[in-house]
């Protein structure tokens, strides 16, 4: 193990300072003093973040520091966990997503999500893409939408001859791109990706990363990843999250933002010693 003293002990609350690092004129998603609890144990503390439009923002950090929890705040998937509690504000296009006038169901169409393990529906490839659009009342030509979504997900050529086969018959990488196509079909503004490549082999990972780069022209992408090379390769901005040692205990781990800046800067000249320790592999 490292000889570095436990980071953060001297400066216990570094969270709020991260706001100063990046200021954006037109953020898609913005959090202000976001705190999340599971039951009585805090999971996220003082998260202040501005996610830029049409960029890829990576969220890195050690296991259990709340990266996925943060991601799931943005499309209110945490609502589904009964014990979740939240304070602070999350703005999406300037609107409070937890406000009484925001409907979680319609929010989730605008903020799509791709999961850690490819999870196509046990239906045909065509139906996998068409379903989301149909239940959201899509009025246009469904065949066209399916084709364009699959094309955008760089999957069309591989599946165009077998649209009526089960989505589960595809390989892992193809399944994940099918899940991306499914998300694109409901025309979201933001795509949240929760370690989308962790179950994929390197070649499939590459194809998904290329795809992300392609998609950022039209979408804002927030990707949680364990893979620092991936964050470095694929993202424009990087959030480095860490465990808050002052509150974290054995079973209650609390995440804070250690640093948030451009990927370039974060990986070459990190300003926080804990970020440096994490990205060089000394902690986490």
């Amino acid at each position: 193990m490292s000889t570095v003293p436990p980071p953060g002990r001297e400066t216990p609350s570094r969270g709020p300072s991260s706001r100063e690092t990046v200021s954006l004129s037109d953020p898609v998603i913005e959090t202000r003093d976001l705190n999340v609890w599971y039951g009585s144990s805090p999971a996220l503390k003082q998260i202040n973040l501005s996610v830029p439009r049409n960029k890829i923002t990576a969220v890195i950090g050690p296991s259990g520091c709340g990266k996925s929890t943060l991601l799931r705040c943005f499309n209110r998937m945490n609502d589904l966990v009964a014990t979740t509690r939240m304070t602070g504000v999350i703005l999406f296009d300037g609107e409070n997503i937890n406000g009484p006038e925001t409907d979680a169901v319609s929010l989730r169409r605008r903020v799509g999500m791709v999961f850690q393990r490819p999870n196509p529906f046990p239906k045909t490839i065509y139906e996998n893409v068409a379903w989301g659009a149909r239940i959201n009342g899509y009025q246009g030509d469904m065949d066209e939408l399916v084709e364009s979504s699959l094309r955008r997900a760089a999957l069309w050529d591989e599946v165009k001859s077998k649209l009526n086969q089960s989505g589960l018959s595809l390989s892992g990488g193809q399944q994940q791109r099918l899940c991306i196509a499914r998300t694109l079909a409901v025309q979201p503004e933001v795509i949240l990706m929760d370690e989308p490549c962790s179950a994929l082999d390197p070649i499939s990972t590459r194809s998904v990363e290329d795809l992300m780069d392609e998609l950022k022209r039209d979408y804002t992408i927030i990707i949680v990843t364990h893979n620092m090379q991936q964050a470095r390769r694929a993202s424009d901005m990087t959030v480095c999250m860490l465990l808050d040692d002052s509150v974290s205990q054995e079973n209650h781990r609390t995440g804070v933002i250690a640093e948030y800046s451009s990927t370039e800067k974060l990986f070459t000249t990190p300003s926080d010693p804990r970020t440096e320790a994490y990205i060089t592999g000394r902690i986490g």
């Binding site: 499309n75 998937m77 589904l80 169901v105 319609s106 929010l107 989730r108 169409r109 605008r110 799509g112 999500m113 999961f115 393990r117 999870n119 196509p120 529906f121 046990p122 379903w131 989301g132 239940i135 959201n136 899940c179 499914r182 998300t183 409901v186």
Partner: peptide, 11 residues
């Protein structure tokens, strides 16, 4: 995962 996928699409 089916439920999550469906809900995340705005169902």
């Amino acid at each position: 995962t089916y439920r999550q996928a469906a809900l995340a699409l705005g169902a």
